[in-house]
């Protein structure tokens, strides 16, 4: 579904991603593991066009995404959930969803506010509340809901568990699990190995902008050396 090869990304003069390659099959949840500053967020931003890579290719459903701006990537079917949530704080829940709304796609489930509220019941109770008056956990739900309204085929989830209370993290894991069952393909950037283990089929480990490991979650669970070298829980 998504095929990335030899991606190189710079921030100003700093080389952030070096020859990064990865691929995602339809229906998979792929975890991108690594610590803060390893290049996880930059990888996701390079895919969705918020950051323009210097070289390399990104192919999504056999079409190139190279040098496309963020709105084109989104319209092609890649949804992005940023780590900082970036809720529109002045807009109500419904208005936040409105901004994310895109026309329906053939052969993919169509998301409406009502369907989104089935997955996130507490959002339904605060339809007219401004985003700025919601708790961190509620905002994290809203930011995912907002992206779903764009009817994405693939979702880039950047550290959805960061900064949340354990009880919310558990809810979040269940939600993502539900979305996977709905047939959504997900790239999940995470530092929290336990969280990723519950959800992902495969994992890439990234360190200093370089992919250091690629394998299934089961392989990773068995490979203590790798975990100690890069994750060290």
């Amino acid at each position: 579904m998504l095929e990335i090869s030899n991606l190189n990304t710079y921030y100003g003069r700093a080389h952030i991603l070096t020859d990064l390659s990865l691929n995602v099959q339809r229906g998979e949840v792929v975890a991108l593991l690594g610590r803060n500053g390893a290049g996880k967020s930059t990888t996701l931003k390079s895919i969705n066009g918020l950051v323009q890579p210097e070289s390399g290719s990104i192919v999504f459903e056999n079409e190139s995404l190279n040098r496309q701006s963020a709105h084109v990537v989104c319209r092609r079917g890649i949804g992005y959930v940023p780590e900082e949530r970036r809720i529109f704080t002045d807009l109500t829940v419904m208005e936040n969803l409105e901004v994310g709304t895109r026309p329906p796609r053939k052969e993919f489930p169509v998301w409406t506010p009502e369907r989104v509220f089935e997955i996130f019941p507490n959002l339904a109770e605060m339809r007219n509340r401004p985003g700025g008056q919601m708790s961190g956990g509620e905002q994290q739900m809203l930011t995912i809901a907002r992206t779903l309204m764009g009817n994405p085929k693939l979702v880039l989830l950047d550290e959805p568990s960061e900064g949340l209370a354990p009880v919310i993290v558990q809810q979040m894991a269940k939600t993502i699990h539900d979305l996977k069952r709905e047939g959504l393909t997900i790239i999940l950037s995470e530092q929290n190995l336990r969280f990723a283990t519950k959800l992902a089929d495969r994992a890439y480990i990234i360190e200093k902008g370089v992919i250091q490991y690629e394998g299934t979650m089961d392989d990773l669970a068995a490979d203590e050396d790798v975990r100690n070298a890069y994750l060290t829980v």
């Binding site: 969705n48 918020l50 701006s69 963020a70 709105h71 529109f88 901004v99």
Partner: peptide
């Protein structure tokens, strides 16, 4: 509020 995010949502 956040024009970049609006772009990332397909606008």
């Amino acid at each position: 509020e956040d024009r970049e995010m609006v772009g990332a949502l397909g606008v």
